[in-house]
Amino acid sequence: MTLQRMDNVGIVVESLDAAIAFFTELGLELEGRMTIDGEWSGRVTGLRGQRVEVAMMRMPDGHGGIELSRFVTPPVTADHRDAPVNALGYLRVMFAVSDLDDTLARLQKHGAHVVDEVVQFENVYRLCYVRGPESILIGLAERIG
């Protein structure tokens, strides 16, 4: 058996609506939204008695996506949203964009801001980290030329 592809990355949020709007503006498509609960789901995550609202956001090409989750029960136990980029654990998701300046302008309407500045890596990419709603951290990369 071999790995086929990455299906999604999960992000826990307080407001599904704000996160959906942010990732929709970025170019992902809402595939579906539902509530997940029941004994089976707790056996997957280790959180028995969970009730979670989930929204699946797919990349425009249909390959991979973001799973946004809002826990109704149990309550959230930790908040890593403002952790610095050198904190242990998952850091961010990086997206390739065709026009970085336009993307940043559109995301600003959803409260997003560049973490520090847009930089150029050699003659290959323009890059930046962006904090979106709820301090969600993403990276954006525009290939030069």
Rank of each mutant, 00 (worst) to 15 (best):
V12S: 13
Q4H: 12
V130P: 07
P74T: 05
L104I: 12
R126Q: 09
L88F: 13
A141G: 15
E134M: 04
G65C: 06
E25L: 07
N86R: 10
T35H: 06
M6R: 09
D99Q: 03
L68S: 02
R81A: 13
S98D: 15
I20L: 05
E142C: 02
T77G: 08
R33N: 07
H80M: 10
R58H: 07
I66C: 00
M59E: 01
G27Q: 05
R43S: 09
P84N: 10
V9H: 02
A87F: 12
T45W: 11
M94E: 09
D17N: 14
M6E: 10
V76D: 07
A112I: 00
E14D: 14
G139V: 00
M6F: 14
G145S: 12
Q120Y: 03
C128T: 07
R92E: 08
P60W: 00
G32H: 01
V12N: 13
I144G: 00
G42K: 10
V115R: 09
A141H: 04
P75K: 13
I36C: 09
A112K: 06
D79E: 08
E122A: 13
T73Y: 09
S69N: 09
V9N: 11
A18D: 14
S135R: 15
L47P: 02
E31D: 13
H110S: 06
D37N: 14
R5V: 03
G132N: 03
I66W: 12
I66G: 06
D37L: 07
E53R: 15
Q4R: 15
E67G: 08
G38Q: 11
G65I: 08
V9E: 03
V93M: 11
V118Q: 09
V72G: 05
R131G: 02
G42D: 05
L68M: 09
P75I: 05
A55H: 00
T35D: 10
V93H: 08
V124C: 08
E53Y: 01
E122G: 13
H63L: 11
T2E: 13
D37H: 15
I36A: 13
P74Q: 06
V52E: 00
A105W: 06
V85W: 07
T45D: 03
N123D: 15
G139R: 00
F95P: 06
L104P: 04
C128K: 00
I144L: 15
L28R: 06
I36R: 14
E14Y: 13
S41E: 09
A18W: 06
V13H: 01
D101R: 14
D17I: 02
R143C: 05
E134W: 03
F121A: 10
L68I: 06
D82Y: 11
I136F: 04
M57A: 00
G27C: 08
M6K: 07
L127N: 03
R131S: 10
A141S: 15
R58G: 01
R70F: 06
S41Y: 15
F23W: 07
Q4F: 08
A105R: 15
F22M: 05
V52G: 02
E25G: 11
D99E: 10
S15L: 00
L137V: 01
P84I: 01
T73W: 08
E25Q: 13
L3T: 12
I138E: 02
